[in-house]
Simulated assay, not measured.
Amino acid sequence: MMNPKIISGFCFGLLVAVTLCGSVATQSAAQEQKAAVKLFYVYSDKGAANSNFFIPSGWMGDYADLTLDNGWSDDVYAGDTCIKISYSNRASSGARWAGIYWQNPANNWGSKENAGVDLRGVSRLTFWARGERGGERIEEFKMGGISGPYPDSDTAGIGPVVLTPEWKQYSIDLRGKDLSHIIGGFAWSANLDGNPKGCTFYLDEIRYE
């Protein structure tokens, strides 16, 4: 007959082993999830499986003066397509400014519960941009900042930015930001004071790193 102390010790050791294995598995899953979010696309190519997690649905200001083509294929930075945005100088609603938010889900101005994306683990938002002619002034490129009952957990941005006709990469520092609930994944705004004749510009490779 086996000694009860030996049986007790064996059972305790088995319990510790199972607990440790479970802990290691949980930590491993968390690390894999964190590693997976280190490259998160807002836009790479039209219809790409690894992008379009945010939708350009939040049109603001003189929104009727805007056009957006997310499948523009002429002089792209990378891949097959880029985004072309044109902003006319009509001031159709009298706002004299316009902009677009990329939202999750579409048309979410902070009113939708259990929405948004947890982007903890990234440290910056990068994108490539160029102007049609050069000199186009974008007042702000940003992420976050949407309020409402279920708002963005934080916000960050850069600007004003004067674009060149050549592709150039821009970066928004996200270190120290609360990225646990992001519904406004990317946004830009411009006005007629900086663009009296309106402007056309292009965006590509918008991603969190």
Rank of each mutant, 00 (worst) to 15 (best):
I158Q: 11
K34L: 15
G148N: 06
Q27H: 07
F40W: 09
F10A: 09
F12V: 10
T164K: 11
G185T: 10
N107H: 08
S111R: 03
G13A: 08
P151K: 04
K142R: 12
C21N: 13
H181K: 13
W167H: 08
R207F: 09
N195F: 08
M143G: 00
W102R: 00
A95D: 15
E140Q: 15
E140M: 14
C11Q: 15
L179H: 05
W97C: 07
G58N: 06
D173F: 06
Y150A: 01
G79M: 04
A95L: 13
E205G: 02
E32W: 10
S153F: 05
D62A: 00
W167Y: 08
S171G: 01
M143V: 12
S73V: 00
Y87A: 10
S153T: 10
Y87Q: 10
A91M: 12
I146N: 14
M60S: 08
F40C: 04
Y202T: 05
K168C: 09
A95R: 12
A106G: 14
G145P: 00
H181F: 03
A30W: 05
N195R: 04
I146R: 10
E140H: 10
G134S: 08
I100E: 11
D193E: 13
K46S: 14
I55T: 14
S73F: 07
V122L: 02
L163R: 04
E113F: 11
Y170N: 04
T81S: 13
V162M: 04
S8A: 15
G184A: 15
P56V: 11
G110A: 02
E166S: 14
S23I: 14
S153D: 00
L125Y: 03
N70Q: 09
L15K: 04
K168T: 07
C82S: 14
D154S: 09
W128P: 00
R175H: 02
V24T: 06
I146D: 03
Y150G: 02
L14H: 07
E209H: 06
T164R: 14
S189D: 12
G135Q: 02
I182P: 07
R175C: 01
Q169D: 03
I100F: 06
T19K: 06
T164N: 14
D74K: 14
W188C: 11
D62R: 00
V37Y: 03
I182Y: 12
F186C: 08
Y87T: 00
M2P: 15
